[in-house]
Every structure is written in structure tokens, then in C-alpha cells.
């Protein structure tokens, strides 16, 4: 659920990378961490097993910079892909504003993809969210492998609600930024629709509808049993006082203005016209009083002069 903090002048959004085990979720985050400017990303924190498999989540804070006077931040998480860790996966998904589903394109992995997607749908439902109304992107990863499903086959099997999709080779960094950019756009678009005055144009959003709200989880499965280690990569401060080189983007942004078709016309009256109208009203009232007084005098009801 997007948090808007007017005291800190911050907007915080949560993005979750979901998908089957070894599909490349953590690799996506590693690429974002590597390619984004140091001043805009914090540490990449992974709670992983000794074999470098995600145990709880990976976490990367990303700072987009100033957007219309608000520091706009994304907290990006991955979930553990293995079936066994469903309860922790559900916890990480709580409050997600957008989801990237990373599917493995390698032939023979379709059942795992479908199972994970179904699991995503169920877990979103437990948090009160409908997958069809949640900003979601499908990323078909590992496109460089020799034996992969065609994009049409992937679409047919996974994309029942016509969500945007991207092909990627996350290991080489291909398709990682476009995926995240599109999802971030959809999340901000839904925020814009819900919280900004109507005249503001859309962010990206070919398909942007979001009922991004969280809720209490009802997970009951037993979670972890393997030894966990926590690793932190590269240090780069991202919090509060960091001077952002991208802070001026809001001034560089296009200043297109559109008027929503739903906006109601407003009657505008100029000050001069209002003054003239007041004078006319006063004149009519005074004339009426004088005329009434003369008529009453003529009728003999009152006497104007002694």
C-alpha cells in the first residue's frame, strides 16, 4: 500500500518480484543495484541460505528523486521462489503496490511458472487483492537459452489478463530496467489517479488500475528450517539528507496539461462585472424607495414635508 507522508514529504511504494525458484528474481535486483546511480540506491540486503537461495527476501531501497515536491521511493523485494517457503512469500507480498512476475522461459519450466502464478493469485487474494486489478508485469526471463518457449506460448499459458510483458536476459542486464520502469510507471499512475487533481496527465499506464491495499495475513504453514545467512552488498547511502543529482527532474519534466473530460465547468465572474452589478442593485432599491414614498404621500398616508 502506497504510503504518503506529508510530514517527511515522501511517497513510499512497495514492489515485489515474484516467480518460481531460480527464475532470476534476485538477479533482477542485483542488476538494478548495479546499474542505478549510487546516490539513488541503498544496500542490497539478502536474507539467504548458505547456498545463496533466498530464504526470506532480498530488499533494495530505490530513490527516484523529487516528484512534484515529494521524495518518491520504491522499496523493492523479492520472495523466495521455492514452493516450501509459501508462508514467508505471503508475508513479503503484504502491502505490495505492484508485482513483477519473473517467469522462466526454459522449456520444461512451464508447470512451475503456472504453479507460481496461481500461488501469487491465491496469496494476493488472502491480502484482499485481485490479480486482475493489481499493477503487474510479466517478465519472460532467460531468453538467451537455446531451448525456450516462444513468447506466444508464454503469453498463452500465463497472461490471461493481458498484462504488459517483457523479454529479458537478467543475467546480462537485458530487459531489467524496462520491466521496472513500466511497473513503477503503473504504480505511480494509480497513485496519480487516486490522489492528484484531475488535470494531471497520466504517467505511463497502458493498463493502470490498482486497488493496492494491504491487510492482515492468515498464513498457517510452517516456514523456515534451514540455516540462514544475511549478506549485504555495496554500501551507498540513500536516506534523508542525500543530495540527489536527479532532484531537478521535476523541472525538466514535460509540462503538458490536459483537462479531464470529467471536469465540471465553473462560472467565472470578473471583479469589475460584480461591482457594476452591485451598483445597479443599489440604484434600483433607492429608486423603489423614493417612488414608494411619493406614492404614499400622494395617497395621503404619509406626509413628506410638514
Amino acid at each position: 500500500m502506497v504510503q504518503i507522508n506529508f510530514a517527511l514529504k515522501e511517497v513510499n511504494c512497495k514492489i515485489v518480484y515474484y516467480g518460481p525458484g531460480l527464475s532470476g528474481k534476485t538477479t533482477n535486483l542485483e542488476v538494478v543495484h548495479k546499474k542505478a546511480p549510487d546516490t539513488s540506491v541503498g544496500d542490497l540486503t539478502s536474507i539467504a541460505t548458505e547456498g545463496d537461495r533466498t530464504l526470506f527476501f532480498d530488499f533494495l531501497p530505490l530513490n527516484l528523486g523529487q516528484v512534484a515536491g515529494m521524495k518518491t521511493k520504491f522499496q523493492i523485494y523479492t520472495v523466495p521462489g521455492q514452493v516450501y517457503y509459501n508462508s514467508t512469500r505471503k508475508l513479503v507480498l503484504q502491502g505490495a503496490d505492484g508485482v513483477v512476475f519473473v517467469a522462466d522461459s526454459k522449456r520444461g519450466k512451464m508447470n512451475e511458472n503456472i504453479e507460481s502464478l496461481k500461488n501469487l493469485e491465491e496469496n494476493l487474494k488472502e491480502h484482499g487483492l485481485d490479480i486482475a486489478n493489481t499493477p503487474i508485469i510479466l517478465q519472460y526471463n532467460k531468453r538467451d537459452l537455446p531451448d525456450v518457449y516462444s513468447v506466444e506460448e508464454m503469453e498463452e499459458a500465463l497472461n490471461a489478463w493481458d498484462a504488459p510483458h517483457f523479454e529479458a536476459v537478467a543475467r546480462d542486464g537485458k530487459g531489467v530496467f524496462p520491466t521496472l520502469k513500466r511497473l513503477a510507471g503503473m504504480v505511480l499512475e494509480s497513485l496519480n489517479e487516486n490522489h492528484a487533481p484531475r488535470r494531471s496527465p497520466s504517467v505511463v499506464a497502458p493498463k493502470a488500475s490498482a486497488d493496492s491495499s494491504g491487510g492482515s495475513t492468515t498464513a498457517t504453514a510452517v516456514a523456515t528450517s534451514r540455516t540462514g545467512t544475511m549478506r549485504t552488498q555495496r554500501t551507498a547511502s540513500v536516506t534523508g539528507s542525500v543530495a540527489r543529482t536527479r532532484a531537478s527532474v521535476s523541472t525538466q519534466a514535460p509540462t503538458v496539461r490536459t483537462t479531464s473530460s470529467g471536469a465540471r465547468p465553473v462560472l467565472v465572474t470578473s471583479p469589475r462585472r460584480r461591482k457594476r452589478r452591485s451598483s445597479m442593485v443599489v440604484g434600483i432599491v433607492l429608486t423603489s424607495i423614493v417612488a414608494a414614498t411619493v406614492l404614499l404621500h400622494l395617497a395621503g398616508i404619509i406626509r413628506i414635508l410638514p
Binding site: 515529494m70 518518491t72 524496462p178 520502469k181 505511480l188 496519480n192 487533481p197 494531471s200 521535476s250 519534466a253
Partner: peptide
């Protein structure tokens, strides 16, 4: 009360995303 962001939020966000995600 409904939280109100700046009217320029949409266009500003688009600019920020284009700027940030240049490869």
C-alpha cells in the same frame, strides 16, 4: 480527507522515470 498530491505529479513522475531508467 482525501490526500492531495500536486497537480503536476503525473507529468513530473513520467519525467523522473524517463530520466532515471535511461540505460
Amino acid at each position: 480527507k482525501k490526500a492531495s498530491l500536486d497537480a503536476e505529479f503525473g507529468s513530473s513522475a513520467k519525467g523522473a522515470l524517463d530520466f532515471f531508467f535511461t540505460e
